[in-house]
Amino acid sequence: MIEVTGLIKRYGAFTAVRELSFTVRPGEVLGLVGPNGAGKTTTLRCLAGIIPATAGAVRIAGQDLTADPVAAKRALAFFPDEPRLFDYLTVRQHLAFVARIYGVAHHEALAQPLLEELEIADKADQLPGELSRGMKQKLAIACGLLHSPAVMFFDEPLTGLDPLGIRRMKDSILKRARAGATVVLSSHLLHLLEEVCSHVLILKKGEKIADGTLGDVSARFANGEANVSLEEIFIRATGGTES
């Protein structure tokens, strides 16, 4: 479960996120959408504890991220848009490292099925430099999933993936959500949100324009029209501009 109350993030005089409050329950997939510079990535980074919020409270799986960041981070996984890996560690060594950081006992028993599910078991002894972009992404996901996080944050999860990779990523997100994980993802690909997300939160200039289930948000901006696409909803909600 993720509970966000009055989240504010400022950079000097610039406010990137304004008074953001929302809740995501286990099994729900929340899609963060908004034009460029809306504050999606900043919000995700605040929620994952990468950057401190200027004000507000964030609770991850019942743990206050500011008061007890270690306990809160133990329950979450963050997947950046660009997989960040260690050049000198093989796939298998990445998992060994992450297991020690999170204290995952007997990680080998968990790692092997994970590598097989993500179809990188045959690359276990290769370095990131020898992997394709998609394979690197899979390795980053394997590292994030090893400690069975209750909460997952995905920043543009489909960047750089081929059609098959996109399909597998969508299935993987839905599978974790059905298993009870709480998922928040940001993406510009609105059709992904339609397929994967149960809820949506539209941001503009750091401010919440709308949130709720896809049906709720669609109804709010559909103006009584039937079968209005999420793309059209997005354009209406954001006024069709970035500023």
Binding site: Q93, A96, R100, I101, V104, D125
Partner: peptide
């Protein structure tokens, strides 16, 4: 860059700081 055998075997549990020593030695 070449894949290398680690300097020592890293147990799954224990002080997490040692994981950095293990990683950076690689």
């Amino acid at each position: 860059i070449k894949a290398r055998a680690p300097a020592f075997r890293l147990a799954s549990t224990g002080r997490p700081e040692i994981a950095f020593l293990w990683k950076n030695l690689l």
